[in-house]
Write a protein that binds this DNA or RNA. Structure first.
Lengths: 351, 351
DNA sequence: GTGAAAGCGCTAACAG
DNA sequence: CTGTTAGCGCTTTCAC
């Protein structure tokens, strides 16, 4: 690792000159010729700044703390982390990731991150939930990911669950389905509430009557399968909007047992919380993807812009992200991430 | 953040004394009374060492670089990361995670990690694969995760795929299955090779004839479903060892179409590369879990022990890990992680 | 036993 | 324009 000192010595100049030049703070301070020289030898020697030494003076480390839960057990985490990491790289930051199993462990981890002088925190949940920012996290720049701040003061990034409901239902309508069922989940999740609201709205807009008997909430078990089977037999739906892959699975199983084929006899749209069905069964299954990658990307962009008190530069964004609506201000409280659609063959031919 | 300086000032002693005491290097150098005083005020002021400042002198940062690929698209990543992180925490390290999309990006990321002075690297693949360590990574302590070093010189941590094959097949035999099929994958993966080897061995040991017609390799598509259906109709198997969840799905679909119920009419064991089926269908589906968490944990333990030239302290391990065989030496070339079994109700009652 | 001093690599104020 | 100086928080050598 070459240091500024070495460059200075090599050229017989002072370290401060080198520092000024290499930080591009030499406008009208260092003679251009000398500056050029410095830059060249820096290049030649393969100089790389030592961010840790720098941070000792500036107390800016270029480190971002990513705090999550359940990374181990959910397939969503990867997308968020990846998006966050890509955005971090694009802004010259590096992520320190910790995953805590409880509040105590989390507090410890946050303390560790603090010791390493992270410039800000990402606080990620694995599904959208109203969340209170713990005391030990206050006072630092922070952005919530896939979570809603209970106090409504911290910026947060969340998927637009309502839009998922509307669009998924519209996809089924467009595919010609007349009797559209909603297979929801039993937990009182924001996603459950908003998606079913979207479902109702889409039906209403299309002039299709909303029947309670077509909306069921099921868990993850044998009982759920029986409930779906009963819905099949009682209501004979020809379109299914499934809260997630697990629910889509029950529909597949029920259909298979009745000699029905998805994509021919019935249409199914699922939200791809999980991956198996989408991977194996496309194009027979249509999926609406939650914008995990996008949430991660936006969250970091937001965090960095808050740290630096700058606006987000849309030109640096990957294509899918650059088309998002620009942020409302330097500290928007909430960004809704748009949806991603995959393989929209709903009710198309089977082979 | 209180500093050593503050403590020193408060007590009217020198910073070096504080440093010695707080690093427990004061044996016979600092008077015990004074040492105690120092420790107390450190405690009282909530002193936390600044690892970055320390690293400037020691060139040890307590940072570990975690390099991976495909974090975004595989559900395995979470487990590995979680295990790695838990082990890191237990040893007082923190992980810097980067996920690169190509060799060029990876090299950049490694350079960034080097600038931050990571003490070592974890190089993780998302399925077991023979891997060459790139030049830009040489020279630092490194451990491969879910990968095999092509040169056989770097330590690596991998699952025991052969054992998976043996045990999964034995589970089916124990459940009373007589005609056991193997639904493999088409890619020439280590996992595919070793699992099928284990399958053959288990059948051989049980005196069951090995039939080529009972072993098929399928992809991820409609064609795969047809192949499985043909197997059903031609061979009428009563037990299925599935390479992964996706393959198990084809078995479920085929069975449902034939009026067969898994757990009553046929037995299925899958390797839970993915999660959906395991989550929704247990206890009807038996799964063998790959030891992702364990691999992450062991890899970091190994890396840290290499960095510090120490042996791994088994007492610090979580219970499931402490029962593993101890490592062969300070620099073992290869650790095989044991398997985890879930819900072993193969061919049990359906409800 | 203890403190003074140097230095890790860098930035920033200030003097020239 | 440029160099000197000081100092971020810590470790380590070396006098006392």
């Amino acid at each position: 690792m070459t240091t500024m000192k070495q460059i200075a010595k090599e050229l017989g100049v002072s370290v401060s000159s080198v520092s000024l030049v290499l930080n591009n703070r030499d406008h009208g301070r260092i003679k251009p010729a000398k500056a050029k020289q410095i830059r060249q030898t820096a290049e030649r020697l393969g100089y790389q700044p030592n961010p840790l030494a720098r941070s000792l003076r500036t107390s800016k480390t270029g480190l971002l703390g990513f705090i999550s839960e359940d990374v181990a057990t959910t397939p969503f985490a990867g997308g968020i982390i990846q998006g966050a990491q890509d955005a971090a790289r694009a802004s010259g930051y590096i992520m320190l990731t910790v995953n805590a199993k409880g509040a105590a462990e989390e507090e410890e981890d946050v303390a560790a991150l603090r010791r390493y002088g992270v410039d800000g925190f990402l606080y990620a949940k694995m599904y959208n939930r109203v969340t209170t920012i713990p005391d030990y996290l206050r006072g630092s720049p922070i952005v919530l990911v896939d979570a809603t701040d209970a106090d409504g003061v911290s910026p947060s990034v969340e998927p637009d669950e309502y839009l998922i409901g509307v669009d998924a239902t519209n996809a089924l309508i467009r595919a010609g389905a007349k009797r559209i069922a909603y297979i929801g989940c039993q937990d009182p999740l924001i996603a459950q509430r908003e998606r079913s609201r979207g479902y109702r709205q889409a039906l209403k807009d299309a002039g299709i009557p909303i029947l309670d008997s077509m909306m069921i909430k099921v868990g993850d078990n044998e009982r759920a399968l029986r409930d779906v089977e009963r819905l099949f037999d009682d209501e004979h739906p020809d379109g299914f909007f499934c809260f997630n892959d697990a629910r889509a699975w029950y529909v597949y199983e029920s259909a298979a047992r009745r000699g029905l084929t998805v994509g021919r006899d019935i249409s199914v749209v699922g939200v791809d919380n999980h991956l198996v069905l989408a991977q194996t069964m496309t194009p027979r299954l249509s999926t609406v993807a939650l914008p995990h990658y996008e949430m991660g990307y936006w969250a970091v962009s937001q965090l960095v812009s808050n740290i630096r008190h700058e606006h987000i530069n849309m030109n640096d964004m990957p294509e899918t992200l650059a088309s998002l609506p620009p942020l409302g201000g330097p500290y928007p409280a909430k960004i809704h991430c748009p949806l991603i659609y995959k393989e929209s063959l709903v009710g198309g031919e089977t082979d």
